[in-house]
Design a protein around this nucleic acid. Structure first.
Length: 286
DNA sequence: CACGAGACCTGTTCGC
DNA sequence: TGCGAACAGGTCTCGT
């Protein structure tokens, strides 16, 4: 489920007061958080979930550490465990939940952290793409990430300059986490639609006004999604509702909300790409 | 440097 | 009904 709004929603939930009661279901919004809890032990149910260090060292190094904070960087969840940092990437199907003592494991649980008070933080990941790192310095893992879309340094001018240093089609470029950190397939398509930019447009063909519009569209769509706890699709359900506000993503064949033209789907960089062929005209290559 | 293909995984949905 | 193909929120690596 994880693009920036979904990760942000999960991180916000992990920051909840730890004395909140556990809800009857596994709903995200009402679960207690983890900040302040101390780790008793860790169960690794799928070894490859642990990216670094080795499973045994991972387990021994986190034992006894207390969580002092939780944050997001791009699509990474950062768990501050002085003197270490745990990083979690949910990839395609990862999910985190906090459960009370005695709660049984679910089918696709891959890693479980049990705290001294009995509560548990569980990483569930159907497709096994998700990874967890334990490092001294988070920059070991994050050093290649681009700016966060909300970073103050990412001014319209800076965004325009970055676009013009590249000669890439804009859609795959937005998915490149080294270029900008946090966008995925949904929000790239939705932002390009809002900015009326064709996904095949070359990045260095965008004008300053188009660049500014695109940056604003990215921020707008992310803010709106975060306000709705992100998007929930198919069997990966987190209680978000932004999927009800998609304008193009998975709307192939449906009329464009602006002009009525059927939304088209193409494959770009091996990812489904959705756009309105009338609102998002492709400029002739210069 | 830019891009496409293949890997890594499991599950659901679609088409015949 | 059955069965294989296509597809799914991500990212890495390799070859051209």
């Amino acid at each position: 489920m994880p693009e920036l709004p979904e990760v942000e929603t999960i991180v916000n939930a992990l920051k909840h007061p730890i004395d909140w009661p556990f809800p009857a279901d596994t709903g995200l919004a009402l679960q207690p958080g983890v900040v302040g809890r101390r780790i008793a032990f860790v169960d690794v149910l799928w070894d490859r979930t642990v990216a670094t260090p080795g499973v045994d060292e991972f387990k021994s190094r986190v034992r006894g550490l207390a969580i002092c904070g939780v944050a997001r960087r791009g699509k990474f969840v950062l768990i501050d465990l002085p003197p270490l940092t745990m990083l979690i990437h949910l990839r395609m199907s990862g999910d985190l939940r906090v459960v009370e003592a005695g709660t049984p494991l679910l089918t696709h649980d891959r890693l479980r952290i049990t705290f001294e008070d009995g509560a548990m933080l569980v990483f569930n990941d159907t497709r096994k793409f998700g990874r967890v790192w334990l490092v001294d310095d988070p920059d070991e893992i994050l050093h290649n990430l681009g700016l966060d879309p909300f970073a103050a340094e990412l001014t319209p001018g800076a965004f325009y300059d970055a676009l013009h240093k590249k000669h890439s089609r804009i859609k795959p470029l937005l998915l490149d986490q080294r270029f900008i950190a946090g966008l995925g397939n949904i929000y790239s398509d939705e932002a390009l639609f809002r900015a009326k930019i064709h996904p095949l447009t070359l990045s260095n063909q965008l004008t300053p006004v188009e660049a500014a519009n695109l940056l604003q569209a990215i921020r707008d769509v992310l803010v709106e999604s975060i306000a709705r706890n992100g998007s929930s699709i198919d069997w990966v359900y987190r209680g978000g509702s932004f999927q009800n506000h998609f304008k193009v993503y998975q709307c192939t064949g449906e009329p464009c909300e602006i002009c009525g033209t059927p939304i088209e789907r193409i494959v770009l960089g091996q990812r489904s790409t959705h756009f309105c062929p009338n609102c998002q005209l492709l400029k002739p290559f210069a």
